[in-house]
Design a protein around this nucleic acid. Structure first.
Lengths: 230, 230
DNA sequence: TAGTGGTCTAGACCACCGG
DNA sequence: CGGTGGTCTAGACCACTAT
């Protein structure tokens, strides 16, 4: 008897691993599984919803529950505030504000926000240090119309990263990962050759369609984003 | 009256956006919220679990529900089979197997799997094409002890990627993203300068601690991994 | 140890969508 | 239109953990 949803989930997952249910197959109805495993339908539902969240099965009304014909690897990454990330590694955190300039948004930022025209923004360039060494360099634009208070915040001590996270929750966000060269922009910051490949995380956030901030976080050479699935 | 869990979730999310509940704050107990919003406790539970899954709140027995003091951006990426990815872009898919050699696992693969000694594996190098152009190059190692059937599969037509996904489900997987240079290994394949930065996705999979495959997928220049949150 | 979330149940009705 | 998953309810009991 399977009386809790995790054991039901694990049983179904095991059947998929054993190919009892193969990609493309339809699984028994929740009610049948409940009867077979000796639990309530809602327990099966809970288990199946968890599997569906992981992308291991697909559920459709009337269509039933299936193992996807083309399974995907669903990977989840938590992107913390940079200070937390560094401290979680047991390293000391340091922060340098390199530039703080009001300016109209440049084209790439305007389009990232989906705006039809440039807006007044605050442009920041800052460096996050781990054990005194450059860890992440951030190039950030903050929409002054949406976040006017930022003008009065002392960003030399507290990073915009932290202030925003605690004071300006977002309702929507896009995240991009890609590779770039250090070039003449970042090479000097990380003291590396301009040809060094660097990992970039770009995030753009909104509150109800009003732009908040768009940030390019360029990580130090060798940085990896790692996660485990399953 | 909020009578379904999504409206409860949205109401709580809205309160967090308005900073009615700020980072570090404790939210009312589920029972109180249920009473306030006029629904059953289980409806509130469903809503809160969804928010907890998104990292928007943290829940602990006896500790209650809180807005995390250090909120994170939780991003989810679906990594499909390469063919599906290309076809989903509306491009034609092509595949070339460049190399297929049995060999003992090299050090970096042995350690990726957490093995104490090298194992017999099948080494593959293959190129995925989108509209005839190089899209992703994969360098893959498959554990022959765990997947002996792979010896009898014709991998010149069907990519190992697809065969494995449909025939060898995994129970555990690690995913890494990082940047690398094209160098002399990948430069010729993508017809680019050796200094070109490339985005790499590295995945290693197991079934119940038995190694299945470890693959480095090197994407074409300019490749981005993109996702939306919220 | 007491307070809070976590889960299970049985039953009902709803909503989507495949045939 | 009928079959399947989706959700809600009320109540009970369990399990963790903050205090």
């Amino acid at each position: 008897m399977r009386h809790n949803w995790k054991s039901v989930r694990d049983e179904v997952a095991a059947r998929i691993l054993r190919s009892d249910y193969a990609p493309g197959d339809r699984l028994p109805r929740d009610e049948e599984l409940a009867a077979e495993l000796g639990c309530a339908r809602s327990t099966v539902v809970r288990a199946m919803q968890d599997l569906a969240d992981s992308g291991i099965v697909e559920r459709r009304r009337k269509g039933g529950t299936r193992v996807p014909a083309n399974p995907v690897t669903r990977a989840t990454f938590d992107i913390p505030v940079t200070r937390s990330e560094i401290e979680a590694r047991g390293q000391s955190y340091g922060y340098h504000l390199l530039e703080q300039t009001p300016a109209p948004s440049p084209l790439h930022v305007t389009t990232a926000f989906g705006l039809s025209a440039p807006q007044d923004m605050l442009h920041l360039r800052a460096l996050h240090l781990a054990d005194q060494k450059p860890y992440i360099f951030e190039d950030r634009w903050i929409a002054l119309n949406t976040v006017p208070e930022i003008r009065d915040v002392d960003l030399t001590t507290l990073s915009a990263n932290e202030w925003l996270v605690k004071n300006r929750p977002y309702s929507r966000c896009t995240v991009r990962f890609y590779a770039t060269n250090a070039g003449s922009d970042y090479g000097p910051i990380f003291a590396t050759d301009p040809t060094t490949p660097l990992f970039v995380v770009e995030r753009t956030t909104w509150v109800n369609d009003a732009p908040i901030t768009s940030v390019k976080a360029i990580a130090h050479p060798g940085y990896q984003m790692l996660t485990e699935v399953g």
